[in-house]
């Protein structure tokens, strides 16, 4: 089956996490995973494994790539296809960013092991959307999940 590379196909209200208040990387990642569990996107039984893989990846080099953005990601067997969570932390998170700045937008990507090609395409597409500073600014001040979805939808069409 050919999987979609439309971000919006993997994003709904349950994959958007607003007003994240955690201060550091480990707490934020754990918080996002708990959020995904509460929305039944992943299971509690798999949290430990997913958390471990995400942290291992961060230890190899921070995924906070500058411009207030982090793209924590892992390929895991327990995830079906693709799971994305777009988390917004208006006050910023210390994510060991390469430009030393705090991170406000965390786009967490989990893909199934067999989806290596799709994983890279998704990372690329997230980067295409998030390299637009105006879009990032709008996301930072978005008040509702509906606002975020509308912004992503518009941006997806603009960069496609």
């Amino acid at each position: 089956m050919i999987m979609s590379t439309n971000i919006i196909d993997y994003l709904d209200k349950d994959s958007i996490c607003l007003e994240v208040k955690r201060k550091n990387k480990r707490n934020v990642i754990s918080h996002i995973l708990d959020y995904l569990i509460s929305k039944k996107k992943i299971t509690q039984a798999n949290k430990k494994e997913i958390n471990k893989l995400l942290i291992q990846r961060e230890e190899m080099g921070s995924t906070a790539i500058g411009g207030c953005i982090a793209l924590p990601h892992a390929r895991v067997n327990s995830v079906k296809d693709i799971v994305i969570c777009l988390a917004i932390a208006p006050e910023g998170v210390d994510f060991d960013s390469l430009d030393q700045e705090k991170v406000n937008i965390i786009a967490l990507l989990l893909s199934n092991q067999k989806e290596a090609g799709l994983h890279l395409k998704m990372l690329a597409f997230l980067a295409r959307m998030l390299r637009d500073k105006y879009f990032v600014q709008q996301l930072k001040i978005a008040k509702t999940k509906e606002d975020v979805l509308a912004l992503v939808n518009k941006q997806q069409q603009a960069v496609r």
Partner: peptide
């Protein structure tokens, strides 16, 4: 010299 720009090329 921008990670996000390079990533966006896929």
């Amino acid at each position: 010299k921008s990670i996000i720009a390079i990533l966006s090329l896929g």
